[in-house]
């Protein structure tokens, strides 16, 4: 039975990380109606922000984490102001431009920091044994953080004025502007929040496996899969989607073959798009 409990614990923890990865992506789609392919780039910038502050500039870990949140937040905000805003109603253009931007960021990181993985400080070092499975404290911290963020975001969206405005814009741009909400401002806020969330995800990923210039690609694909599975734009759906994918992936790796890492989300994505394009819970994708 050790196999099962190990499977459950590992899957649960990994799913928490995945939810963290996908949530910023979901937020932007839900509010702005565009797919941000530079989400992966924000993740890279989060991890390298910490690296830059701690290793290159020699600042403390705490300052490093702050830089790791500010850098992707600034990137995301500027991306919105500089590019996305002008092409707001052309989702395809946004995809092309964010994809181009994200590759540009990757190459910039590759050319400045090199192709070797760099180390990112852990949130909490050390290990603990849970139900017969050895788990890093760092992973537990990520798991807890992920839930804090999910709950926090939920409260923010439902109970603050800005949050409610975000909700309104996500439902109808026009309607929101009729009641005096500046949808550009709300979009900007959303992009910045999404940048911060991606930064957290980047730090979490980097602290586990080290950071590389291309570390944002897998999470980006993961985000698509989770978000498509959960129904694009729904935060609750994304959390559920993250857990489904987390369990499937760990199951694949543990019970079938180690080589299948990374392929599960792709298969789920293609499967869902073909069989049930509207996702399990969310809005309609296909007409």
């Amino acid at each position: 039975m050790a196999g099962i409990s190990q499977f459950v614990i590992q899957s649960t923890i990994r799913s928490g990380l995945y939810a963290l990865v996908a949530i910023g992506f979901t937020l932007i789609f839900g509010v702005g109606g565009v797919l941000n392919l530079a989400h992966g780039a924000s993740i890279v910038l989060g991890a390298y922000g910490v690296y830059l502050a701690t290793t290159v500039l020699g600042l403390t870990t705490g300052v490093g984490f702050v830089v790791g949140l500010l850098l992707p937040a600034a990137f995301s905000g500027l991306l919105y102001l500089g590019i996305i805003k002008r092409f707001d109603h052309e989702p395809i253009m946004v995809m092309i431009l964010t994809l181009v931007t994200s590759i540009a960021v990757e190459l910039l990181v590759l050319n400045t920091a090199g192709s070797q993985p760099v180390a990112i400080p852990q949130f909490v070092p050390g290990n603990v044994t849970l139900g017969g499975t050895n788990v890093q404290y760092n992973l537990l911290a990520v798991f807890v953080l992920s839930w804090l963020i999910i709950v926090g975001l939920f409260l923010f969206v439902n109970y603050t004025k800005t949050g409610k405005a975000i909700l309104a814009v996500s439902m109808s741009d026009k309607g929101a502007s009729l009641v005096g909400i500046d949808s550009d401002r709300i979009n900007l806020i959303t992009w910045i929040i999404a940048g911060v969330l991606a930064g957290i995800a980047g730090i979490a990923l980097g602290s586990q496996l080290g950071a590389t210039f291309s570390m944002g690609r897998t999470p980006l694909i993961l985000s698509f899969s989770i978000v498509v599975l959960g129904g694009i734009g729904s935060i609750r759906g994304s959390v559920v989607g993250a857990y489904i994918i987390g369990f499937i992936e760990v199951g694949f790796v543990q019970f079938i073959s180690n080589d299948l890492t990374g392929i599960a989300p792709l298969l789920v994505l293609v499967g869902v798009l073909l069989v049930k394009p509207e996702g399990l819970f969310g809005r309609e994708l296909a007409e």
Binding site: I92, L273, L285, A286
Partner: peptide, 13 residues
């Protein structure tokens, strides 16, 4: 079956 961005997701992956 898929339109716009959703088809692009398939081509992307």
């Amino acid at each position: 079956r898929l339109r716009g961005p959703y088809l692009s997701l398939v081509t992307l992956v």
